[in-house]
Simulated assay, not measured.
Amino acid sequence: MTKKILVVDDSPSVRHMIERTLLNAGYTVATASDGRDALTQAMAFRPDAVLTDQNMPNLDGLGFCQAFRASAVHAGVPVIFLSTDSSPDLKQRARDAGALGWLVKPFDAPKLLGVMAKVVGS
């Protein structure tokens, strides 16, 4: 069974690059433009993992992660942040919100795929 990844980023070009990378690796991908959209997408798509940006309009990555974790439906689904912001304080706040890991933009495709393989398999 193909693993499903939800990609959340407000930049259409970044979303597209991540989506292509994951699709080419054999994952099924859904995308969302912000945290609010991602919560809606997550209910319909039921992802095996989420890759989210931090700085987005409407609902940022931390807010999304907290709301996502509040739903029992998503228990155990790994959330990985992919952001230009990598301050230790923000990373700790993300962990406190339920995130499993943090990658820094611009992303390295092999590293991104390695992380996805670790958290959901291929």
Rank of each mutant, 00 (worst) to 15 (best):
K111V: 11
M43W: 06
W102N: 01
G121Y: 00
R95W: 07
V79T: 12
V104R: 09
L62W: 02
G61P: 00
P110G: 03
S86D: 14
D9S: 04
D89I: 15
S83Y: 06
Q66P: 10
P110Q: 07
Q54P: 03
A49K: 11
L103S: 06
S87L: 01
V77M: 04
A72L: 12
G101H: 07
F107L: 02
A72T: 09
K105N: 10
A32T: 05
K4P: 04
S87G: 06
H74I: 03
P47G: 01
L112F: 02
L62H: 01
D10E: 09
K105A: 14
L22D: 00
T31Q: 13
D37G: 03
G26F: 03
N58L: 15
M116W: 08
A25F: 09
A109F: 09
T84V: 07
R93G: 10
D34L: 00
S13W: 11
V14Y: 11
K118Q: 12
A67W: 09
A72P: 07
T28Y: 13
S87C: 01
Y27L: 04
R20P: 07
S71T: 13
T31N: 14
S86V: 14
C65W: 07
F81Q: 12
G26M: 00
V79E: 08
F107W: 10
A38S: 03
L22H: 02
E19A: 08
A67V: 05
A70P: 06
L6C: 05
G114V: 03
T31K: 07
D108C: 11
M56T: 04
Y27Q: 06
P78L: 00
P88G: 08
E19D: 11
V115L: 00
L22Y: 03
R46W: 13
L103A: 06
D96S: 08
L6K: 01
A97C: 02
C65D: 05
L59D: 07
V120L: 01
T84Q: 06
T84F: 06
G61W: 00
A38K: 01
D37T: 01
D85W: 08
L51V: 12
H74S: 05
L62M: 03
V79N: 06
D9E: 03
T84S: 15
G63Y: 04
N58D: 15
T28R: 13
R93S: 14
N58R: 13
V79C: 11
P57K: 04
R93D: 13
P47F: 05
Q66N: 11
L39P: 02
T2C: 09
P88T: 05
H74V: 05
L103V: 05
G76P: 05
G121P: 02
G114K: 04
V73S: 13
R15G: 03
D34C: 01
K3Q: 10
L23Y: 12
F107Q: 04
I18C: 14
V120K: 07
P57I: 14
A25N: 04
P47Q: 03
K118W: 05
F81T: 07
A25I: 05
R36W: 13
E19G: 13
A42Y: 05
E19R: 15
S122T: 15
L39E: 04
R20D: 10
V115P: 00
A94N: 09
R69P: 02
L100W: 11
P78R: 00
D108M: 11
L100T: 10
A70E: 15
S71M: 15
L23G: 12
F81M: 14
D48A: 06
G76H: 04
